[in-house]
């Protein structure tokens, strides 16, 4: 792996920091002895759609999980929508309200119906009356095109449907940012498209998205920035057409050749 830092290409456009939705400054994270994130700098403007790729163990999941503090970073600053992520429980609660997350294995709650999955946080976190919560949830279930499944349990749905429910569940909280952690890698091939279609639609509506995925087709259509991570560092980031046609680093080239082969 190259140890060079690609300062010229990787600099995010200089911006007034107050208009940034996510800002990570020199973020470091260790798992025991293992250095999982090394001096990560990342600035995300509202409306940006960022695709993050890289080999497994490169720190891409860890990075986005730090943004809603499913993982605790040990050094550096993370500021989400003007709220600084510290141990302060109130800050953590506030950030989690603003940030939606979609997991690789959906993490739907199997003992609750689809509807209950969606209304849970509205009722208990946003303290919304049950009726309003159900109306809101129905709106988002319609958006992901499964309103008819509302009374079923997650176990009765296909993987693709479950993932769309998970997306609707996050959208219910009306988040400013959506994080996707490999949303399609646990799905059978024929179900990937239905999930990607929902994500594309979301992008077109202007949602700020950070997406860890290896769906390069998705990256080409939707992303306005593609990022390659390796060894806990952001190696390279660029606009999608530049990134795919003219990667700067040999490590990126090798990775792209490996995943684009098939």
């Amino acid at each position: 792996m190259t140890t060079l830092r690609a300062d010229a290409v990787n600099q995010a456009p200089n911006q007034d920091p107050r208009s940034l939705i996510i800002e990570m400054k020199q973020v470091n994270k260790w798992f025991g002895e293992f250095h999982a994130l090394k001096d990560i700098d990342l600035s995300v403007e509202p409306g940006e759609r960022i695709v993050i790729c890289g080999p497994s163990g490169s720190g891409k999941s860890t990075m986005i999980r730090c943004i809603n503090r499913l993982e605790e970073h040990q050094k550096g600053d993370i500021i989400v929508d003007g709220i600084e992520l510290t141990a302060d429980v109130k800050h953590i609660d506030n950030v989690r309200r603003e940030v939606g997350m979609v997991f690789q294995h959906f993490n739907l709650f199997p003992h609750l119906t689809v509807m209950e999955n969606c209304t849970l946080a509205l009722i208990w976190v946003r303290r919304m009356p049950k009726k309003d919560a159900e109306e809101a949830a129905m709106k988002y279930l319609e958006r992901v095109k499964i309103p008819e499944q509302a009374q079923k349990y997650p176990g009765q749905l296909s993987g693709g449907q479950q993932q769309r429910v998970a997306i609707a569940r996050s959208l219910c909280m009306n988040p400013k940012v959506m994080l996707f952690d490999e949303p399609t890698s646990a799905l059978d091939p024929e179900m990937i498209k239905e999930v990607l279609d929902v994500m594309i639609e979301l992008a077109e509506e202007g949602m700020t998205m950070l997406c860890v995925t290896h769906e390069m087709g998705f990256a080409k259509t939707v992303a306005n920035r593609v990022m390659f991570m390796d060894g806990g560092e952001i190696v390279e980031q660029n606009k999608p057409d530049e990134f795919f046609t003219n990667p700067q680093y040999d490590r990126t080239k090798l990775f792209l050749s490996q995943i684009l082969q098939h």
Partner: peptide
Amino acid sequence: PRGQFEGADAMGLK
């Protein structure tokens, strides 16, 4: 599964 704890956390439940 750990995902259930994380799912609940990510939704902002205490």
